[in-house]
């Protein structure tokens, strides 16, 4: 009898939690919930409120209030509308290019490459993630600057780079976010049973038919998962545009420019990428793909 009570007494915390499931739940979630609600949701909410406040045009002093002018401005000033559309275009292009690169690469890595080459490629894809974000942007800047590597390399062919502009911003963002698309796509292709490839060719399908009838449909969830990253990260970025875009402005550039001068406008404008992402996630959800993320 004494041994039994000793045994029980030795784990007072575990047995307490076992008997009180609610306490267990609270202790499990209190820290992450504090983080999500306290830091994330509250600050987003404050941002939303700021968007309705006034600013003194001379002193830049912000005073609480309620006016819709900031929003009206965001939706009516042509430069703002153009920037929204430009940013959306850039983010969609980056996502599309990432998909176009990731699918063939994933098929090659998962189904064709020898194991040693597959490992090298996997490292090559993830390696840029270890380099700093600014470092990579500056690297792209050096490559595409007037006397940069690209122009030097292409000079014998008479080709000159476009200079800092929208295409280079798209290229830079693709470079930055490509791993987030390539890894889920590659993993998803690896998970396709090899028999499905055999079965498809057994029934008369050549390589491309198998890719678009079997591979692509099966990796749609992975593409959506990857695109959530490439799309939303591109949407919010402004340093790529600043350093490799020349005069190119993105939503983030305008927010960054206004953040001290006119915080309410910056807050109102930051609702645009949030809205884009929410719409995007809703569309993705309808395809049923988020459940498998």
């Amino acid at each position: 009898m004494s041994t039994k009570s000793d045994f029980r007494g030795s784990r007072p915390i575990s047995s307490f939690f076992l008997r009180k499931p609610k306490v267990r739940l609270i202790s499990l979630l209190s820290l992450p919930m504090t983080w999500i609600v306290g830091v994330y949701i509250v600050s987003l909410f404050l941002l939303l409120i700021t968007a309705f406040w006034n600013v003194d045009p001379f002193t830049s002093r912000v005073s609480p209030g309620f006016n819709l002018e900031n929003f009206i401005m965001v939706f009516t000033v042509p430069a703002y509308i153009a920037t929204s559309i430009r940013t959306l275009f850039i983010a969609l292009s980056v996502t599309a290019i990432c998909v176009l690169l990731a699918v063939p690469l994933g098929i090659y890595m998962a189904k064709i490459a020898k194991p040693w080459l597959r490992n090298i490629l996997a490292v090559a894809i993830t390696l840029p993630l270890w380099a700093g974000y600014l470092v990579k942007i500056i690297a792209m800047r050096l490559v595409f600057t007037e006397e940069g590597f690209f122009n030097w390399l292409m000079a014998p062919l008479g080709i000159r780079g476009p200079g800092f502009s929208i295409p280079i911003v798209i290229l830079t963002l693709t470079y930055l976010w490509f791993p987030y698309m390539a890894l889920p796509v590659y993993t998803a292709i690896r998970q396709i049973p090899p028999n499905l490839f055999d079965a498809s060719s057994d029934m008369g399908a050549k390589g491309f038919t198998t890719v678009y009838r079997v591979v692509i449909p099966l990796i749609v969830p992975a593409i959506i998962a990857g695109s959530v990253f490439t799309f939303s990260l591109s949407l919010g970025d402004y340093l790529a545009a600043r350093f490799t875009g020349g005069a190119t402005q993105m939503i983030g550039s305008i927010i960054a420019a206004n953040i001290n001068l006119n915080p309410p406008v910056a807050a109102a404008y930051s609702m645009i990428p949030i809205a884009f992402v929410v719409i995007y996630l809703m569309v993705a959800r309808r395809t049923g793909s988020l459940e498998r993320m």
Binding site: N195, L196, D198, A199, S200, S201, D202, K206
Partner: peptide
């Protein structure tokens, strides 16, 4: 290649899409 042969296969784990 498999797609040019007049033979078809039933796979061990069925390989249904």
């Amino acid at each position: 290649p498999p797609f040019d042969r007049d033979v078809n296969t039933v796979f061990q784990d069925y390989a249904l899409f």
